[in-house]
């Protein structure tokens, strides 16, 4: 689909980069353009992706120390004074430790704070279950007025970072520490709230977000060789969800698979299930995600494999929903 400007991941060598880096480049580009932004970090500049920004724009940067709650509260004050602020910490610390401050100060005041959850999903790898944030999308999504974006690669991460500066309310951006394939290019369209079809297909739709969009693309390609047309939709914005594209996918393909590097409860899968159930159409749906458990130590790729977040795992889920489609909707 050349109009999307996607990298041909099946034929050319892919470049790898952490989406944390895209965040950093987005911040630098904003500052270079003269945007009046303030960037905060809580003793994670070395890993989260703000160290280069700190070097280039020291007067726009503040490292507040291991004070995530204070950081979110202080950011609220900075936003209250009319400034555009980005706060940076681990996904699980933003969504966990600072959640009440985000809820009761930032969201209650509809304040313009952009929250970066770095090292999210399984990308904290060896650090294991306590550091891997799988619940962040679910808990951020419940907050009134919160926008939630999970970029697929570092380029999309950069676009999302820049786009957040134009969104007046709070935004949660989720990034990963693991080096993952770059599948988009500068010309690939990206609009917050608008999902994009990355591969066409009429037998099933795969809705994915984050670094596993790449795996969905690979799965679709594998399935194509077996005569199954799997549409791939990059559903980078979990909230507001692009309900129209999901509804269309359910009508046109009759079966859905969601894929995310997070908890099976309340994330992209949950959001799609809510949207779908309310259309009144019975469409088989399979949520490929991490089912009611913590992550564990291991290399990022090993963990994706363990949890079935791979082209193979996705293909198996596709076959399952397609067979259910036949069972549940007998030919009339």
């Amino acid at each position: 689909m050349p109009e999307m400007g996607l990298v041909d991941v099946h034929h050319s060598a892919v470049k790898l980069e952490a989406t944390n880096r895209g965040y950093e480049r987005g911040l630098i580009e904003l500052a270079e353009r003269g945007a009046d932004i303030i960037v905060m970090d809580a003793d994670l500049a070395g890993s989260s992706g703000t160290s280069e920004f700190r070097k280039r724009f020291p007067d726009r940067f503040m490292d507040i120390g291991l004070c995530e709650q204070d950081m979110l509260g202080t950011a609220a004050g900075i936003a209250l004074a009319g400034k555009c602020v980005y706060v940076t910490t681990h996904g699980m610390l933003a969504a966990g430790k600072a959640w009440d401050i985000i809820r009761s100060t930032i969201c209650y005041g509809a304040l313009n704070v952009n929250i970066c959850g770095a090292d999210a999903g399984l990308s904290a790898g060896g650090a294991g279950g306590s550091r891997q944030s799988l619940e962040d999308v679910a808990v951020m999504r419940t907050l009134p007025g919160m926008t939630v974006v999970v970029p697929a690669d570092s380029l999309e991460a950069k676009k999302a970072t820049i786009a957040a500066s134009r969104i007046p309310g709070p935004v949660y951006l989720r990034f990963a520490a693991a080096r993952v394939p770059i599948i988009t290019t500068d010309i690939t369209p990206f609009t917050v709230g608008k999902a994009e079809v990355y591969r066409r297909g009429d037998d099933v739709s795969i809705l994915a977000c984050g670094v596993v969009v790449y795996e969905a693309m690979k799965a679709s390609r594998m399935l194509e060789d077996n005569g199954i047309g799997a549409r791939v939709i990059n559903c980078h914005t979990i909230k507001p969800l692009d309900r129209a594209i999901i509804s269309r996918a359910s009508v046109e393909t009759g079966a859905l698979v969601t894929v995310e590097e997070g908890a099976s409860i309340g994330g992209l899968g949950g959001a799609c299930a809510e949207a779908l159930a309310q259309t009144g159409r019975a469409t088989p749906l399979k949520i490929v995600a991490i089912d009611d458990r913590f992550g564990e130590s291991g290399e990022h790729e090993e963990l994706l494999n363990t949890f079935g977040l791979t082209a193979r795992g996705i293909s198996a889920a596709v076959r399952e929903v397609i067979s259910r489609k036949k069972d549940e909707q007998p030919q009339s």
């Binding site: 650090a127 294991g128 550091r131």
Partner: peptide, 13 residues
Amino acid sequence: FRKLKSKLQGFPD
């Protein structure tokens, strides 16, 4: 330590 399926997780369990 820190390997898949290890008793010794990155952070104590």
